[in-house]
Amino acid sequence: MSKQENYDPSEIKRHMGMSAKNRISNTVIYIVLIIMSIVWLAPFVFIVLQSFRVESTWMVGYVVPKTWGLDNYINLAKTDFWHWYTNTFIMALATAVGQTVIVLCMSYTLSRFRFKMRNGLMRFMLILGMFPGMLSMIILYRLLKDLNMTQANAVPGLILVYIASSGMGYYVSKGFFDTVPKTLDEAARIDGATRAQVLWKIILPMAKPIVIYTILTAFMGPWGDFVVARYISMNTPAGMNVAVGLNSWLSADQIISRYTMFCAGGVIVAIPVTILFMCLQRYYVEGVTGGAVKG
């Protein structure tokens, strides 16, 4: 007598019901996920397709080009695009270095040291963060203008703006340092290491994930920044970054001749940033998740 016959028939039916139900719900989930993937990726596929369109440079109601060609990419060289690209790249590099140094200094200090003004300082920065950053732009523009760091010379000015206030964004990385046991510091201090040596020789090597996360987000910042760059460059093409420059191509008077070039420019901007991001994805995910859990 085989074992199976011992089962109560209704029991078997119930199990079958469960797995059938499961199969249906899984199928539904697969369908939803496939539709989602299409919706999420479609705009990016479209933008690539349209960047190869030759027959017209304006917006059309269809996606697949009738005539394919590299004209849009070649024509980019005749515009300020590569200038904007270089601007943005320089800013991204400088910001990545400067912002990382500042954020790490700030977050490590607030995580490890207990000094008199610490709580007051943190509360003060929380309150400062409630003011819309936009408010500062008016005066920053005038200040930087006095230093000749606006319009055509906007690049150093923008770097300064990106780096200077970055200490306010210490939360994620402080959350990370908080999870590194303090006993490590104490052990090293007993062995005679100074605080600086503890940071340099013990904490930093362990903090690789958060350092990479900070560099990555800092590097990506200038590529996506729109409002600050627009304000500081003040309609001067020489000082624009890619976001402001490409946006200007979509204005009412330029879109007719520049729309497909906008698509081509977008593709060129997106490719390196996306590749970098996908390579370092793991660190980004860790940082974002940790940051949200810690609040």
């Binding site: 990016f44 490409l246 977008g266 940033v273 996306t274 994805q281």
Partner: peptide, 10 residues
């Protein structure tokens, strides 16, 4: 996640 990587303005 790929959609996060592409600069938002684009």
């Amino acid at each position: 996640v790929m959609t996060i990587a592409i600069p938002q303005f684009i």
